[in-house]
Design a protein around this nucleic acid. Structure first.
Lengths: 208, 208, 208, 208
DNA sequence: CATGAATGAGAGTTCATTCAT
DNA sequence: GATGAATGAACTCTCATTCAT
């Protein structure tokens, strides 16, 4: 008889709590995510959750951290596809970011849409690490500028505005706020094309 | 002595409820906005609010509607500044949108950051009207394309992606998620420049 | 039909909450006094208590304050019986204090046996007023010393030690810690006689 | 290498549980003393405590018993200092009692300030033994009366009232309820002097 | 027009304790 | 001898809402 035969080997429940929290997050929304609901969903008492997490905050912070790591992986993988072509690399990063958001709405929600008050309690060291996700964008922009493909004054600022555009794109899609007559793929493609175009050279605006 | 001299004419209280709700929204955040708190803030009983609004949802929907109208006004005013120059008009629209978000964080929060579940209950007719705010962007893009300043396939789609970028920009700023080392104005200017550039002509990418 | 016909006129419930809290306090002990239990005892929902008291602390502080006032009354009445005879006055005060404690064990418990942590939150102004209860003892001692009946160095200190003795007496009786073979009245009389004797003149201890 | 060298010989953990409970008692207060906290403080699981104590009550009762024994030792030692001089002996006993209380607030709290409900469950045989601590006082009073130094009707009663006074003194000091302007030593000295004086001869109060 | 009274549901969290291993 | 897993009951407190007046 193995430990897993009763479905309750140690790390398993912790994992189930996290997963259930994620699912509830996307199903019921952050506002309706409560310890009791999580407990009910996994068929355990609310008390049990506290065996694995010190508090609701700790649980959420764990989810945020997981999401950050996962996003980090996705971005690294995307960047690795085009080590020598900054432009293609930036595009891959954008696409990877959007895909991550759409495929992991739960993670996305707590990572980027948590109200500032909750975020304040997020451990600073983890927060700093999260910021690193922007570096991939900045690096691609800098490299692109170096080889003359992009016009970029400050890569850090440019990376932030790129992020802003992508974030807006994902947010609206997740919130179902995009005109229903527009196909999501069209929306995404257009958004990314617009972002890419945003740093390209342009001929002087045609004088009248 | 008029009815309004003692501050209790009919419409007055309704107005105060709405205004107080807005202020609480920005001060305490959406999560902490409760009927009781609104009532306490205006010095009336919680019950009184129900004389003017059927439910908390109804109150929020009214606020959303007001915000949509206000945004509509701002965008119209911005568009009117440059009736003949689509490019300048688009830029003015972008700037107006961002300014609206930053100057009216309460409205912005409930208008664009409310969870979908709440939004589902938003009356469809009002919702449709809200969509119209996008039309100003679409019109400017279409006009710009007509005179050859922009490359735009579908103005409606392009308007949506513009909106997405602006929404991301405002969201990150309001949530205090932008790198503290970047000045807000720099961030905004860069974001808008990037959006504008996103639809300009470009020389064909140099083929290898 | 009068307001009280359904047993729920306004101030009535507040009064019942306080009284019920007092009774539970002596029946179940401070540790087991909960908002729910109070609510259950009066047949109302727990929420209702919060209509009359901001918090559990506020409720307890109200009880403490009431107790202090009541004790104050008792002491004043006792002192008034012997305005001109300090010795008799002191004795009356002692007796009044002990009687108050034994007749109002609930008040006594929260007034004098509340752990310091809870007491810290007691409003300072009310606390200061509570201290005044000691003044009656100090005054009697001072007056007695003035006419040569007592030997008292510092009336404030002496009042405190008198209070200590009485407090110990009441505490042990309430906690049922006095040897069951000793009649309570005997115990009380002896205790008070001992206190009174504590400040009288004494001939030099008889040399061998 | 002995069994105790790794800090885990049988009786050791039991001892550590008791000691830790005592320390937590004085640091955090009785209300905040929980099995979990004790376990955490010693680095063992909460379950382990139940290997040595049947329940929280049993643990507390053990502590109470220990305290009683310890107090007994202190009082015996004090009494032994003045075997032939009852008056000095009584004073030494008083001082020893107060010192014990102030130096062992943890013990004192559970020994004398535990609510009656908890006390009811205290095993009767241990309780009876606890009573013996009063005997030392009674003996000194009796001896003093025998040699004419004290006026004592019933030594058992007198011992109880002495105890009451001392208990009040210690209680107020521990609860920080003594006027901050009075130095603790002054308070203690005055209290003890008052107690001693309480049994001395007095000239008949001058009749008018 | 406005309120006071009242509530059920639910929030996060802590507790002493049990049981199988 | 010691533990990890688990729980039911309890805690204070907040919420949107209803109803009679």
């Amino acid at each position: 008889m193995t430990a897993s035969s009763n479905g309750s080997d140690p790390e398993n429940l912790r994992r189930r709590i996290l997963d259930t929290a994620r699912h509830l997050l996307v199903q019921e929304g952050y506002q309706n995510l409560s310890m009791r609901r999580i407990a009910d969903a996994i068929g355990y008492s609310a008390t049990s959750i506290y065996l694995y997490f010190d508090s609701k905050d700790a649980l959420l912070h764990t989810l945020i951290h997981e999401g950050m790591m996962r996003l980090h992986d996705r971005l690294e993988a995307a960047a690795a596809q085009h080590p020598d072509r900054p432009e293609a690399r930036l595009q891959a990063l954008c696409r990877a970011f959007v895909q991550f958001g759409l495929h992991n709405p739960e993670y996305y929600e707590i990572m980027f849409q948590l109200r500032p008050e909750r975020m304040e309690r997020y451990p600073p060291d983890k927060y700093r690490q999260a910021r690193k996700n922007l570096d991939a964008f900045a690096a691609a922009l800098k490299a692109g500028a170096a080889e003359g493909a992009f016009v970029v004054t400050d890569p850090r600022v440019a990376a932030s505005t790129v992020w802003a555009s992508l974030h807006g794109t994902v947010s609206l899609l997740l919130a179902d706020r995009v005109d229903a007559r527009i196909a999501p793929d069209t929306f995404i493609d257009t958004a990314i094309r617009q972002v890419m175009q945003g740093f390209r050279h342009t001929p002087a605006p045609s004088a009248p």
